[in-house]
Design a binder for these strands. Structure first.
Length: 550
RNA sequence: GUCCCUGUAGCUCAGUUGGAUAGAGCAACUGCCUUCUAAGCAGUGGGUCGGCCGUUCGAAUCGGCCCAGGGACACCA
């Protein structure tokens, strides 16, 4: 909560106690203010009068007028008005707004950051794409959201670890190895058999082609004899993980931990977690398989953890993996999954509860589908068939900034239409440039006025409507950051930056920053510096560059 | 069939967790560059918040029942 708000709430609480001495203590506890959508209703609004109506058995309007009699209107408050049903609306004085700007300037680049997270350990696992092919648009969205979220949480004082879970074993990986082998054999004019669930993408061909060059006949295995399935499998995983890592780095996404499922399997942790579940009586045998009683925790049906052939299902290692997350002491565990994993939420949460962990610490976000539009038509995709648009292609086509921005533009759980032409357009249609342009414009003005020093002494000269709007918007930045963190939604920040940029463009067109009036210019330069700082801070949290020139 | 998500302006979407006359961008139309970046600004038009009922001071928001679209319902990963 921001300082003005805290001061206001204290003032209201005192006024309520003075106006209605007999009021119960908890009536004013947890009192919060609202920022009205419409400026006409003031800078902050309170519904306390309506809330107290029942307890006091009085009309909200009467309660409101009783309260405002006891509110000190000197200093921070310009005026207080009562509106129809019983709202009390507060209009903050210019003086108080300007002192808020002073505080913002003094905080500098740290403005907006907080210690809300209290250095608690947080882990965010995202992308975690199977190494069976290149990253696609869908992964791009998860990468952009996850990385931005990590930055925001860090800004809020969390100790954040970004983790990628590598699914480097299992049926799909075997199919990948076999696909590569088949392609390699074909290129060597040897008999080959393409697996039923094989991967047909162009990247398979390219890997096979590269192998034909590196595996020389002199080494005695050039024709493919003696090359095991495992060899091809490991080779393919290594290669693909290499390109995935590179793509992510190019996208500005850096992971702290790469967690291999294979290593998890080798560690014996899967057997251990099964033992624990068994001891707790959450496992039973049926049809030669071992089942987990996930229905005890609200899942639709029980789940198989050991198949009748003795192998594990997909969830089994994942249960062990999640146990480890809790064991490592993370207070906030965030997973970002694709929509196809929707059904797994309840079973993973069930497993965590069965193991005795607090499921509230685990947030599983589903990053909904991305529909790519090219020339107004949706682009169809299928990984198996090799028909897909890769993240790399998107970055090459529209650039890193625009792609990150577009991926974050909508709520995580809502479908996203990604229009390639729009993202690429360097015109006013494109919202990325709108924000970057505001930042570049400010840089340009600052450069133009390099002989003018920002001067805090003259801030009282700021009295224009647009100036107050700008400062009030800046004041809300910390609240926005908190909201984005609390809701795990970076788009809240993005929308705010659009607003802020809008207020700046408006101001810029209404008034000149640099004039012959030196004190006024000094004050305005202070203001635009503050705007620039917040724009750059916010863009940075989204992983988008704040450009000095455009 | 069961469960989950979605339904708000011509299009793409917000709506501060129940607040006031429901907003933004795009598209359409009208203006603004001899002065700090026109990738910008100012303005106009555009709505049965899918429908009905309920909860209360107050509902796009909460509950129930319908309608429409999408997704998930493996001893696949």
């Amino acid at each position: 909560m921001i300082k003005i708000e805290i001061d206001l709430i204290i003032a209201i609480k005192e006024a309520v106690k003075k106006a209605f001495p007999g009021i119960s203590a908890n009536a004013v506890e947890g009192l919060s203010l609202e920022v009205p959508k419409d400026k006409r209703f003031g800078d902050f609004s309170s519904n306390i009068a309506m809330r107290l109506s029942r307890e006091l058995r009085k009309a909200p309007l009467d309660i409101a007028s009783g309260i405002i009699k006891h509110i000190d209107k000197s200093g921070m408050i310009q005026s207080v008005k009562i509106e129809k049903p019983g709202f009390i609306n507060f209009y903050i004085s210019n003086k108080r707004v300007i002192s808020a700007l002073e505080d913002i300037v003094k905080e500098g680049v740290g403005f907006g950051s907080s210690t809300l997270g209290k250095s608690k350990k947080a882990q965010i696992e995202f992308v975690s794409a199977n190494p069976t092919g290149p990253l696609t648009v869908a992964h791009g969205r998860q990468a952009a959201i996850g990385d931005s979220l990590a930055r925001i949480l860090k800004f809020c004082g969390y100790n954040v670890i970004k983790e990628y879970y590598i699914n480097d074993e299992g049926v799909q990986i075997q199919a990948l190895g076999k696909s590569l082998k088949a392609m390699f054999m074909e290129l060597m004019n040897k008999e080959s058999e393409f697996p039923e669930n094989g991967y047909k993408g162009r990247y398979i061909y390219e890997m096979a082609k590269a192998l034909t060059l590196t595996l020389s006949p002199e080494k005695g295995r050039g024709k493919g004899e003696g090359l095991s399935d495992d060899f091809f499998m490991e080779y393919a995983v290594k290669e693909i993980m290499g390109t995935i890592t590179k793509d992510l780095e190019n996208f500005g996404v850096h992971f702290d931990v790469w967690y291999s499922q294979k290593s998890l399997a080798k560690s014996g942790k899967i057997e251990k977690v099964l033992e624990i579940l068994k001891d707790k009586k959450f496992l039973y045998q049926k049809d030669d398989a071992t089942w987990f009683r996930s229905t005890d925790f609200g899942d639709d049906k029980d789940r198989v953890v050991i198949k009748n052939d003795g192998s594990y299902t997909y969830v089994t290692p994942d249960i062990a993996y999640h146990k480890e997350k809790f064991e490592k002491g993370y207070e906030k565990i965030i997973n970002i999954w694709g929509p196809d994993h929707h059904g797994y939420i309840s079973r993973i949460k069930a497993a965590c509860q069965a193991l005795g962990y607090d499921k509230e610490k685990l947030s599983i976000l589903i990053a909904q589908l991305v529909t790519l539009y090219r020339d107004g038509k949706p682009v169809k995709m299928s990984t198996r068939e090799g028909e897909f648009v890769t993240l790399r292609e998107i970055i090459n086509e529209v650039g890193r900034d625009a792609s990150r921005f577009f991926f974050i533009m909508r709520r995580t759980e809502s479908h996203l239409d990604f229009d390639l032409a729009l993202a690429k357009a360097e015109t006013m249609d494109n919202p990325v440039y709108y924000i970057q342009y505001a930042h570049a414009r400010i840089s340009s003005i600052i450069e133009f006025s390099e002989n003018v020093k920002p001067n805090l002494d003259n801030l009282a000269l700021l009295d224009k409507q647009q100036e107050m709007d700008l400062i009030k918007t800046l004041v809300h930045y910390p609240k926005i950051i908190e909201a984005a963190a609390a809701n795990l939604e970076p788009y809240i920040l993005l929308a705010y930056l659009q607003d802020l940029a809008g207020f700046f463009h408006s101001y810029y067109n209404a008034y000149r920053i640099v004039t012959n009036d030196k004190p006024l210019t000094e004050a305005r330069i202070v203001l635009i510096h503050a705007v620039k700082n917040v724009l750059s801070s916010g863009l940075n949290l989204l992983g988008v560059n704040a450009l000095e020139k455009m």
